[in-house]
């Protein structure tokens, strides 16, 4: 009777110990998985590269822009479309379509900005006038200095 009882106690003690060990093992395993996955996860996130801050970019000389022509230039990391109307006016707009990030082009026949991907249309002020684009294109300022065409950030006033 007595020995039976101690046997039962022993077994239950052992069982508790076993359970405890399993819990520890499980917890340790998950902690370990975390210790492995955390660095890998962090590693996969591309580090931020210092942003190239640009305030103005030289697009070229006026001679490169006959009336009714355009050119796409790099403004920092983003493309900007610089174009000249029939009447000789210069404009600059962000060249990234607000719909799905395609690069837009200047349609000389209609003097409009056109995105070939999904037939989006903007007017020369960058307003989305037809097709899927949800928002207007951001405007840049064009300054003519001597014979240089300079594109600067900032709102047209």
């Amino acid at each position: 009777m007595n020995s039976d009882y101690s046997d039962i106690v022993n077994t239950s003690k052992k069982q508790t110990r076993r359970k405890f060990l399993d819990v520890i093992l499980g917890a340790g395993f998950f902690a370990w998985i975390g210790a492995v996955l955390y660095p890998i996860g962090k590693y996969l996130v591309p580090p931020k590269v210092a942003d190239i801050s640009v305030d103005s970019v030289e697009a070229g000389v006026i001679g490169e822009f006959p009336p009714n022509s355009s050119k796409i230039i790099r403004f920092g990391r983003r493309p900007v479309i610089v174009f000249r109307q029939h009447n000789g006016d210069f404009h600059a707009l962000s060249a990234t379509c607000t719909h799905l990030d395609c690069t837009v082009q200047y349609k000389s026949e209609t003097e409009q900005i056109w995105c070939a991907c999904h037939n989006g249309l903007y007017d020369i002020e960058g307003r989305n006038i037809s097709g899927p684009p949800p928002k207007p294109l951001a405007q840049y300022q064009v300054v003519l200095q001597n014979d240089k065409v300079i594109v600067t950030r900032g709102e047209m006033t």
Binding site: P39, K42, Y43
Partner: peptide, 9 residues
């Protein structure tokens, strides 16, 4: 130098 934990990998 730039990627997090890149040195470790």
């Amino acid at each position: 130098s730039k990627v997090e934990f890149g040195w470790l990998i």
